[in-house]
């Protein structure tokens, strides 16, 4: 009951969804769409569970007065602000849109742009051309970076103007992206996909049960 029923449910839903992909019949497509809508209905409950857990964690932080506990109130304020406006009035409400455009989008972009500084310092430490492989990584990264900006081709066309080949850096970058880079990516995609399929089969057959957790 506690482990067998979930395993049966997993197998039945998995096999049904797999079979719907092989039949264009309206009955099969109806089942596919219904199960998909079920998954979309169930997923928000996961989000609510995650939000409740986040709130519980921060309530505990406030109770225990751990370091920076005062900032937990800011998380509550952020959630409350968006939910109080967004749930009753919808995501199209002007105040909700204003909050999204002037609070969330700038912070999102700034957080990611902050990584430009850290990625540069990490690269300085990691990209020392000690081995052939590290040198290959370094040279490729430099060509791709310089090939992406106009100054790369400006440098090529002025300093290396003697070469019978204009815009060499951006052309080389594109060739790298289209050939050796793509072949490595294809190798990774094929390997990962074979792993994903075998893992899915193991899950459906009940061999892989780690998602059930421990206990009875």
């Amino acid at each position: 009951m506690r482990r067998q029923v979930p395993l049966i449910l997993c197998f039945v839903f998995g096999v049904v969804m797999m079979l719907t992909q092989f039949s264009p019949h309206s009955f099969s497509q109806g089942i596919y769409e219904e199960v998909l809508s079920w998954a979309l209905i169930i997923s928000p409950f996961m989000l609510v569970l995650g939000t409740v857990t986040l709130i519980q964690t921060h309530v505990a932080r406030i109770r225990r007065r751990t370091e920076h506990w005062q900032y937990s109130f800011i998380i509550f304020a952020g959630i409350l602000l968006m939910v109080v406006i967004g749930i009753p009035f919808g995501p199209q409400h002007p105040i909700f849109v204003w909050l999204f455009n002037n609070v969330q989008v700038p912070m999102d972009a700034t957080m990611f742009s902050l990584l430009a500084f850290f990625i540069a310092s990490a690269a300085y430490r990691a990209f020392r051309a000690r081995t052939f492989e590290a040198s290959l990584l370094l040279v490729t990264a430099l060509i791709v970076m310089l090939g992406n900006v106009p100054i790369g081709d400006l440098f090529w066309n002025t300093v290396l103007s003697g070469l019978p080949w204009d815009n060499g850096l951006s052309d080389t970058k594109q060739w790298i992206l289209d050939n050796p880079n793509l072949s490595a990516r294809r190798g990774i995609i094929l390997g990962v996909s074979l792993g994903a399929i075998s893992q899915s089969i193991r899950i459906l057959l009940g061999i892989e049960r780690s998602y059930l957790g421990g206990g009875d």
Binding site: R2, L9, M18, I42, R186, A196
Partner: peptide
């Protein structure tokens, strides 16, 4: 332990969808 029911349904449906779609898009097409 009842939390296993929704997880099993989501994982089962996801795995069932993944097998033919990953095979088609990522293995055959690549």
């Amino acid at each position: 332990w009842l939390v296993r029911y929704p997880i099993a349904i989501l994982i089962g449906a996801g795995s069932g969808l993944a097998i033919p779609n990953v095979l088609r898009a990522n293995i055959f097409e690549q």
